[in-house]
């Protein structure tokens, strides 16, 4: 393999981060926000992987991060299902009270 130009990965990571932020802020559906969160986490993973160099700590932590992300998404979705049951909507604007009664 020839030398890769590593800085582009960083820029990609920054881009992913920015996009993720954009989606989290501006989208109204909960699933959309979860997608955005995934993008952010992935940008962090990419960063970790880019800087892992000789030792493999970067990768290790990236693996940890992925595992935790999976847990988080599972729980988030479970909560979403519960919230959807009471509010009948997955629109973030309408999900601003704990109980709809």
């Amino acid at each position: 393999m020839s030398e890769l130009y590593p800085t582009y990965y960083l820029y990609l990571s920054a881009f992913l981060f920015g996009a993720g932020i954009f989606i989290v802020i501006s989208k109204r559906n909960v699933i959309f926000v979860l997608v955005g969160i995934e993008l952010i986490l992935n940008s962090a993973n990419l960063l970790l992987a880019t800087f892992s160099k000789a030792d493999l700590n970067g990768q290790t932590f990236a693996i940890f991060s992925i595992v935790l992300t999976v847990c988080e998404v599972a729980i988030a979705l479970a909560i979403l299902l519960n919230v959807y049951k009471t509010h009948r909507s997955s629109n973030l604007d309408e999900l601003n009270e704990l109980s709809n009664e």
Binding site: V24, I25, S26, V33, L92, D93, N96, E97
Partner: peptide
């Protein structure tokens, strides 16, 4: 704000 996205903003 009551909207969580604003808090994030």
């Amino acid at each position: 704000s009551s909207q969580s996205q604003w808090q994030i903003i």
